[in-house]
Nucleic acid binder design. Sequence first.
DNA 1: GATGAATGAGTATTCATTCAT
DNA 2: CATGAATGAATACTCATTCAT
Lengths: 191, 191, 191, 191
Amino acid sequence: MKQEQGDKRQALLQAALELFTEYGFHGTPTAKIAQQAGVATGTLFHYFKTKEELINQLYLDIKEEFRERQTEGIVPELPLRVKVRRIWENMIRWFLQNPTKILFFRQFGASPYITALTKEQGMQHFKFVMELFEEGRREEIIKDMPPDMLFAIASGLIETIGMYFLKHPEQFDDERFRDMTFAIYWDCLKR
Amino acid sequence: MKQEQGDKRQALLQAALELFTEYGFHGTPTAKIAQQAGVATGTLFHYFKTKEELINQLYLDIKEEFRERQTEGIVPELPLRVKVRRIWENMIRWFLQNPTKILFFRQFGASPYITALTKEQGMQHFKFVMELFEEGRREEIIKDMPPDMLFAIASGLIETIGMYFLKHPEQFDDERFRDMTFAIYWDCLKR
Amino acid sequence: MKQEQGDKRQALLQAALELFTEYGFHGTPTAKIAQQAGVATGTLFHYFKTKEELINQLYLDIKEEFRERQTEGIVPELPLRVKVRRIWENMIRWFLQNPTKILFFRQFGASPYITALTKEQGMQHFKFVMELFEEGRREEIIKDMPPDMLFAIASGLIETIGMYFLKHPEQFDDERFRDMTFAIYWDCLKR
Amino acid sequence: MKQEQGDKRQALLQAALELFTEYGFHGTPTAKIAQQAGVATGTLFHYFKTKEELINQLYLDIKEEFRERQTEGIVPELPLRVKVRRIWENMIRWFLQNPTKILFFRQFGASPYITALTKEQGMQHFKFVMELFEEGRREEIIKDMPPDMLFAIASGLIETIGMYFLKHPEQFDDERFRDMTFAIYWDCLKR
DNA sequence: GATGAATGAGTATTCATTCAT
DNA sequence: CATGAATGAATACTCATTCAT
């Protein structure tokens, strides 16, 4: 029984994620989230002060999970291009395994419900990649451009490619397509 | 007096655009749209059967305007790279002149309010560019990849770059930055 | 063309009758009445100051038509029972030929939309029958009871029988059923 | 405290009944029903999914109450005519004690708001009377006519008589009037 | 007379949130 | 901690009526 600590919280977040991506924030009443999570309506407000807090918490949780996955298998010794490729594959694979999560970002990344503070906190999760790019730039492997431009473009491109593979999952199993799309990504970044 | 034909409809669309990008669909009551457009609440429903129809109509209207601007100054004689560059600049410039319009797409492109039919109709507006890419691919100037992948990536990248310049408008006045960002775009596409 | 005088008024009343019996007063917008009558929305208000006036006018028009039909073929020489029978048949036949009209009364006879004044005016149309009953009472053919009780019961019973035949129109073609139901009616009235 | 179970539901039905008979369905906003019942506007929709459901529930509740009252004091040993008389008086008395309830049926029995299903369910409440009539018909006490005709006429007549006494309540205290009106009813039915 | 675009008050219903149990 | 009945502000949409043409 003790192992159920936080179970309800987690169930609420999961239910919210599924419903939000299918029906949108407004299309998803808190009562329905609670119902799908198998708890009473009041319980949601026990774990999250408001619906907005739930939304923002969900955003941060997903970002955090994303960050953890991103750097799996990365060791310092690897050459830059290999590191970038591995991170790239980590991200795309995570997208394909968690479609609702990337859809969540696509839909709500620009939503007024997500506060500026939350977005800023979410950004913290990408320090590692930004530093990697910066290193590449110093070594004249990566294009010489403002770091935030670089980051914006790289993130946007990954998301776009992820969305594409989400529609054509079978293509990702084909190494040629993986190489082709990574080539696009890399051509963008490299000098 | 006759010049006022459609004035109210236009005013409603404009008001909706501004309010939607600031407060979201749900955060914008129809009454507020009507008020800002300077018409009665009922009038909105005279022109658009539902709020959803207004939203979808707005989407299509903007896409159409976008399409018109996109191909300005393009003549058949120009070499492919020049055509692509010109279209690219047309698009970015239009973004900078119409920030609310690109924000509208960013926020609502994935919204469940925009119907699949509307999105499909919106796609029709990009035939010209798709054919241009196809031509480039046959001439072995542009990467050999599935056309929808190419299109998805190109559109995503343009939007990303547009969003970046929206945050740093002064950089777009500097030719070096324009060249640099177009180079990124072109590196993505070219063989 | 001159023969079309009043055509629109008549068309409006007819459209209103059909729509009211199908959807109720509230379920029938004036715009729909106008549309079905083939006139502009504003035109309705040219002929009837308000929707309520249209309703009340419709009520009176139908009552008047009913009154006209009621006494067809009645001549003073006939014995009382024969007169009553003939009136009875006139009424039932009119019901069967004008189902929407009797439905209109059933549905809206007690509606707050029909003003007291209208109902009183509608009553005037039944003087003839009331006098006939009174005469029968004096001649000790008809039960000795208060005239308004008699009239209420007789009217109620006719309507009930009319509604019954409306559901089973083929039975009215069978003389035995006509006799049977008239017998019920007459048993009510006669001493 | 537990005695308040269902109190709000009952209060809503009672308020609705009063307001509907006075102002009609359309003339009665749900907000007013809630207010008169002493509950919040949202509470109405907690107990009844829609206004229409409230209306139909009210219809069935009244029918059910009517049925319960109808057969009070009826024991099998009584002769048929006495049973019919007692039922008749039960019904008229109930009408006089519950004027809004009979008015409700008069006004809304034919309303499109009351669904066919509801009307059918309401019919179930009259099995007892229908069987009684059927028995009388077999014993050749009651006229030989189709059962639904008999039932329609008997119900219509009771309602008409009830409405009459509602307008002249003092007459019902006079035994002669009770006898007279029952005689009319019975003359209709008996052979 | 006839039109139909425009009006804006009115209404059913939803839903985030509270709180007594 | 958990419940779910109760709340009432908020909102999309309707519709009788007006009036400039």
